[in-house]
Every structure is written in structure tokens, then in C-alpha cells.
Design a protein around this nucleic acid. Structure first.
Lengths: 121, 121
DNA sequence: TGAACATATGAACACTTGTTCATATGTAAA
DNA sequence: TTTACATATGAACAAGTGTTCATATGTTCA
């Protein structure tokens, strides 16, 4: 039909509603912002990190106790704590040889609640 | 990934505060639930899927228009829409040859807002 | 000082993931 | 039917990820 042909782009990609595409394009946030958002959620996309965060909901904990709690190696926990630290989700406080980690973000708990709601329904 | 040594002796791990570990352990949700939560957030951990979802905030769209909007192949978009569909985050409606996708979850927008707040601060 | 301990870190490896490519499926018009 | 089109899907591949292992760093105490 002519209608469809008129809405064809010069590229090889077909388009149903060119005007809609342009409207939505203008409302999209910057590429970089959306990338950062994905990077942020990526941190929650691993069950070990989820477990660490949940543990820290309950109490500040040192590395070895988290490792004991989750029955994982100290090294694995330390690596993951670094990821959480780099995302500014946890902070740490040194006390002698021990390093205590705690949550450093007010949004996590609500985000987890919403995620749980989705899973449950 | 996730090749955990099941035979690891839990007693060979040092512990700072055994009582705390046990207390936290009892408050932890089921392993499966935490795994599902990680799987849920994993869906948000890719910028293509983030972009698709953000586009669907603005309007229901067909596959080819999303592909055009994001300047990606139809196949790549279709693959990612399947991931979103499997997570019950989007639904679709067929109209002739065209398939229109729309958001199917009330939590996403709030989750994105909270994520944005974290990034901005 | 040196031993013991708690944590951090780099490399290696197996597993995972997102895209492309080719093709299949399904729909509507000619 | 045949053709064109919109979408879905499987295989393959490169890039990414989480854990282990070995070791380094840093702290406390004898």
C-alpha cells in the first residue's frame, strides 16, 4: 500500500509509524544515563551480591562473617564487596584487621521490595 | 559459573561473631527467592533492555519501530523482547503481521526512578 | 622482629550473555 | 497459489562475569 511505502525510511529498516518513533526518540534520556542505569541494576543481577546486601539489611558485618554466613570463600566475598563498593552501595569501616561493611544507599530496600512484589504476583 | 565447592568444610572458615552469623542466617529469605530476585534484576542489567522499557514507557510499539528507534536489528530486539516477555515485564498484542508490545508491570517505573536517584546522587 | 590473622588482588578458567546471520513461521494482499 | 512483509528462532561467536587459586597487603600481638 502507498501508506506503508511513504513511511519507509531511506535505510533498510522498515518502520510502521515514523512519527511515533521520532516522538519517542525525543523523550528518551541520554544514552549514557540509560547505560549507567543498566550498570546499576547489573549489580543486583547476581545472587551472591543479593545475599550480601540482604545480610547487610540485618547487620553490619565483616568479610569473614559474610563468607561464613553464605558458605563461600573469603576471596569470592571480597571480590563481590568490591563491586558493591564501586557502585557506592556499601561502605566500610576498618577496625584493626577486621573490615566491617554496611549499606550505603537508602534506595536498595525499596527496590528490593518492589522486585519481590513482582516475583510474588 | 557458580561452581561452588559443595564439600567445603564450613568449620574451616574463621568467624568473628558466630552468634551474629546465626542470627542473620535465620532472617535470610529462602535461597530460591533470592535467586529469583537476582534473575529479575538481571533483566534490567542490559542497556538495550533498559532502552526498550523506557521506550514502552512512552508508547506501545511494534518490533520494527523499536528496532528503528534504537538503530538495532529486528532480530536483536526480538530476542530481547522475549527476555522481557519471559520475565512478565511486557505483553504483546498481534495486529495482522505486526506485534505490538507494551509494559505489563506497575513496579518498573518506580524501580527506574529509584535507580536514577542513586545514579544522580 | 616475626608469626598469625583478616582482607585484597591479579590471573586463569569455565560458564554466561548479547549480537549477528541465516532461516523459519505466520499473516495479508496480489 | 505466490509474493511480500513482520516477527521469531536456533546456531555460532566474541565479550563479559564469578569463582578459585595463589599471593600480596596490612594489622595486631608475642
Amino acid at each position: 500500500m502507498e501508506f506503508v511505502d511513504e513511511n519507509r525510511q531511506s535505510t533498510d529498516q522498515p518502520v510502521m509509524d515514523k512519527e511515533l518513533v521520532e516522538n519517542v526518540r525525543q523523550k528518551m534520556p541520554d544514552e549514557e544515563l540509560l547505560y549507567d542505569l543498566a550498570e546499576f541494576f547489573k549489580v543486583f543481577g547476581d545472587s551472591t551480591r543479593i545475599k550480601i546486601i540482604w545480610a547487610l539489611f540485618e547487620a553490619d558485618m565483616c568479610v569473614c562473617d559474610i563468607a561464613k554466613l553464605l558458605n563461600m570463600s573469603q576471596s569470592a566475598i571480597s571480590h563481590q564487596l568490591r563491586v558493591l563498593k564501586n557502585s557506592r552501595l556499601v561502605r566500610y569501616k576498618k577496625s584493626g584487621k577486621t573490615v566491617y561493611y554496611s549499606l550505603n544507599d537508602d534506595h536498595i530496600e525499596r527496590i528490593f521490595e518492589l522486585g519481590m512484589e513482582h516475583i510474588m504476583e
